[in-house]
Lab assay of single mutants.
Amino acid sequence: MQRVNMIMAESPGLITICLLGYLLSAECTVFLDHENANKILNRPKRYNSGKLEEFVQGNLERECMEEKCSFEEAREVFENTERTTEFWKQYVDGDQCESNPCLNGGSCKDDINSYECWCPFGFEGKNCELDVTCNIKNGRCEQFCKNSADNKVVCSCTEGYRLAENQKSCEPAVPFPCGRVSVSQTSKLTRAETVFPDVDYVNSTEAETILDNITQSTQSFNDFTRVVGGEDAKPGQFPWQVVLNGKVDAFCGGSIVNEKWIVTAAHCVETGVKITVVAGEHNIEETEHTEQKRNVIRIIPHHNYNAAINKYNHDIALLELDEPLVLNSYVTPICIADKEYTNIFLKFGSGYVSGWGRVFHKGRSALVLQYLRVPLVDRATCLRSTKFTIYNNMFCAGFHEGGRDSCQGDSGGPHVTEVEGTSFLTGIISWGEECAMKGKYGIYTKVSRYVNWIKEKTKLT
């Protein structure tokens, strides 16, 4: 034993070699072989497995989906700052455009905790909710729209109204504003409101030439003092309507412009014939205590009207009353817009006519005020429907199939267009061939041609 100890002390290297040989010859039971080890760690190889990531292109799944990435790591994937920024906006807080917040056709661009709407022409605001041009839906104005110097929408209202708090709607500024039905039992019968379409306001006024200088022999019209197929109006439903009495009662109609003036057809009036105007009328054979009678003290036909040349060209006249009318729910003026808007309103496509005229061709006159909704007829169809001249200051309205029309005794009465609950004068009943005849239409004086003249002559002093 002493000898062994001496050998170990003198030859430590020998001992180490012996131990190493023993270990190498022993069977290893701690580690699995290569094949079995792979069965336990069965993990798919990654895209760049075996390579240094710093030297390969980034992978979106590896960089940002398996674990949260930084902007720089995302930049490695896209290799483009702009594309990385677009991805980053949604990656950080989701897609803010998912709810489609942009209105009126706006395009949404996502941002971090926010979004941006790219608005089409005519709109602005956070969600493109603000109209900035009158060309689109009248700028959301209830009545009139004008573009300011910086191309912003400025709404306005006709006389007797003021802008509401929203700067879009119009509200009454006087007790009985024009064009409004205020009798409670008839307010439910107000005709369907007309909503502004998209309009090209630059070209809204037709490029028409008034044929002022045409000389033409007097034409022989049949029954051209021209509501057939209409309905009984309720008291106060058309408070701007008046009836004219002269040699015979209810020979023509008219509309209240203001307390002192009536507008009617020029062919209705004769110099030297006494005319009485009755406002607030409903049943011409009954006294309903809503009527107001006034005498006409002055007749002003349009300066281009000449019955000797043509009885229905420039067929418009103004009547001055001896005493002002007292405005109330049964006696209310009709609204008159400017030339541009009167023309736009007419193009809405349908209007209402009213009167006490004959209820059928050569038949009896109506006792109760009649009204009828009539569609506008395109000019080409209008011209083809008659052998008589249709001037540019006239328009056609009615039904091709016949059966409904204005008729004798309705002449001078109103053709009105309702705009968001307020009625505007767009025409004056003038003439036609018979009444409600198939293929024939009622012919009306186009008020847009005469609004400046009306307003100039009827100013209240």
Results as ranks from 00 to 15, higher is better:
2 Q>T: 07
8 M>A: 13
10 E>W: 13
11 S>H: 14
12 P>T: 14
12 P>I: 11
13 G>L: 14
15 I>W: 10
15 I>F: 08
16 T>W: 13
18 C>G: 10
21 G>N: 12
21 G>P: 07
23 L>C: 11
23 L>K: 02
25 S>V: 13
27 E>C: 09
28 C>S: 12
28 C>P: 08
30 V>I: 13
31 F>W: 10
31 F>H: 07
32 L>M: 13
33 D>G: 12
34 H>P: 11
37 A>S: 15
37 A>M: 03
38 N>T: 15
41 L>M: 06
44 P>D: 08
44 P>I: 14
48 N>M: 01
48 N>Q: 02
49 S>P: 03
51 K>W: 04
52 L>T: 05
55 F>C: 04
56 V>P: 01
56 V>T: 14
58 G>A: 11
58 G>Y: 02
60 L>S: 03
60 L>C: 00
60 L>A: 05
61 E>F: 03
65 M>E: 06
71 F>C: 02
72 E>L: 05
73 E>S: 00
77 V>D: 02
77 V>K: 00
82 E>A: 11
83 R>C: 06
83 R>L: 13
84 T>I: 03
85 T>M: 13
85 T>S: 08
87 F>P: 02
87 F>Q: 03
94 G>P: 13
95 D>Y: 11
95 D>E: 08
97 C>K: 03
98 E>L: 12
99 S>G: 12
101 P>C: 02
108 C>M: 02
109 K>Y: 07
111 D>Q: 12
111 D>G: 11
114 S>Q: 12
115 Y>E: 04
116 E>G: 12
117 C>H: 02
117 C>T: 02
119 C>S: 02
119 C>R: 02
120 P>F: 05
120 P>I: 09
122 G>M: 08
123 F>E: 04
123 F>L: 08
125 G>L: 02
126 K>Y: 14
126 K>N: 14
127 N>R: 10
128 C>K: 03
130 L>G: 10
133 T>H: 12
133 T>N: 13
136 I>V: 10
136 I>N: 13
138 N>F: 05
142 E>P: 04
143 Q>P: 00
148 S>K: 09
148 S>E: 10
149 A>M: 11
150 D>S: 11
151 N>D: 11
151 N>H: 11
151 N>W: 09
152 K>R: 15
153 V>A: 10
155 C>P: 01
156 S>E: 11
158 T>G: 05
160 G>S: 08
162 R>Y: 12
163 L>Q: 04
163 L>K: 04
165 E>M: 12
165 E>S: 13
168 K>W: 10
168 K>I: 12
169 S>E: 09
173 A>F: 09
173 A>D: 11
174 V>F: 05
175 P>C: 04
177 P>F: 01
177 P>Y: 01
177 P>G: 03
180 R>Q: 07
181 V>H: 10
181 V>Y: 07
182 S>P: 06
183 V>F: 10
185 Q>W: 14
187 S>W: 11
187 S>N: 07
194 T>Y: 14
200 D>A: 10
200 D>V: 12
201 Y>E: 14
203 N>D: 07
209 T>V: 15
210 I>W: 14
210 I>R: 10
210 I>K: 08
212 D>M: 09
215 T>I: 07
216 Q>Y: 09
217 S>Y: 10
218 T>H: 08
220 S>W: 08
221 F>T: 10
221 F>G: 07
222 N>K: 11
223 D>H: 10
224 F>G: 12
225 T>H: 10
226 R>C: 06
231 E>A: 13
234 K>E: 14
235 P>M: 08
235 P>S: 07
241 Q>T: 15
242 V>Q: 00
243 V>C: 05
243 V>M: 06
245 N>P: 03
246 G>E: 05
250 A>P: 08
251 F>C: 05
251 F>R: 08
252 C>R: 00
253 G>S: 08
253 G>E: 04
254 G>I: 00
254 G>P: 01
257 V>E: 01
259 E>V: 07
260 K>H: 06
260 K>P: 01
262 I>L: 04
262 I>G: 02
263 V>D: 00
266 A>M: 04
267 H>T: 05
267 H>S: 10
267 H>E: 02
268 C>I: 01
270 E>D: 12
275 I>K: 01
276 T>I: 10
280 G>S: 02
280 G>D: 00
281 E>A: 12
281 E>V: 15
282 H>D: 04
282 H>F: 09
283 N>C: 07
284 I>Q: 07
285 E>V: 10
286 E>Y: 09
286 E>C: 06
288 E>W: 05
288 E>N: 08
289 H>P: 15
294 R>Y: 01
294 R>Q: 02
295 N>Q: 13
296 V>A: 05
296 V>Y: 01
300 I>D: 02
300 I>Y: 06
306 N>M: 06
307 A>Q: 11
308 A>D: 12
313 N>V: 10
314 H>D: 06
314 H>V: 03
316 I>C: 02
316 I>P: 01
316 I>Y: 00
318 L>Q: 00
319 L>W: 02
319 L>H: 00
320 E>I: 01
320 E>M: 05
321 L>T: 03
321 L>G: 00
323 E>K: 12
324 P>E: 06
325 L>F: 13
326 V>F: 07
328 N>I: 00
328 N>H: 03
328 N>L: 00
329 S>I: 05
329 S>H: 09
332 T>H: 06
333 P>D: 01
335 C>D: 01
337 A>D: 00
338 D>Q: 05
338 D>M: 04
339 K>G: 07
343 N>W: 03
348 F>R: 10
350 S>W: 15
353 V>C: 03
355 G>D: 03
357 G>N: 08
358 R>G: 11
361 H>D: 15
361 H>C: 05
362 K>F: 05
364 R>I: 08
364 R>P: 07
365 S>Q: 15
366 A>G: 11
368 V>A: 11
369 L>E: 06
370 Q>Y: 04
371 Y>H: 11
371 Y>S: 11
371 Y>E: 06
372 L>A: 14
372 L>F: 13
373 R>M: 08
373 R>I: 05
373 R>S: 10
374 V>F: 02
375 P>V: 07
376 L>H: 06
377 V>Y: 03
381 T>I: 12
381 T>W: 06
383 L>R: 12
384 R>V: 07
387 K>E: 10
387 K>G: 09
389 T>Y: 11
389 T>E: 14
391 Y>N: 15
395 F>H: 01
395 F>L: 01
397 A>K: 02
400 H>Y: 11
400 H>D: 12
405 D>F: 11
406 S>T: 15
407 C>S: 04
408 Q>D: 15
412 G>Q: 05
412 G>S: 09
413 G>H: 10
415 H>N: 01
416 V>A: 09
418 E>H: 07
418 E>W: 06
420 E>V: 10
422 T>Q: 03
423 S>D: 03
424 F>N: 00
425 L>Y: 00
427 G>F: 00
428 I>W: 05
429 I>K: 15
431 W>Q: 15
432 G>I: 05
438 K>Y: 07
440 K>N: 15
441 Y>V: 13
443 I>L: 14
444 Y>S: 01
445 T>N: 04
447 V>D: 00
451 V>D: 02
453 W>S: 00
454 I>D: 01
456 E>N: 13
457 K>L: 11
459 K>S: 15
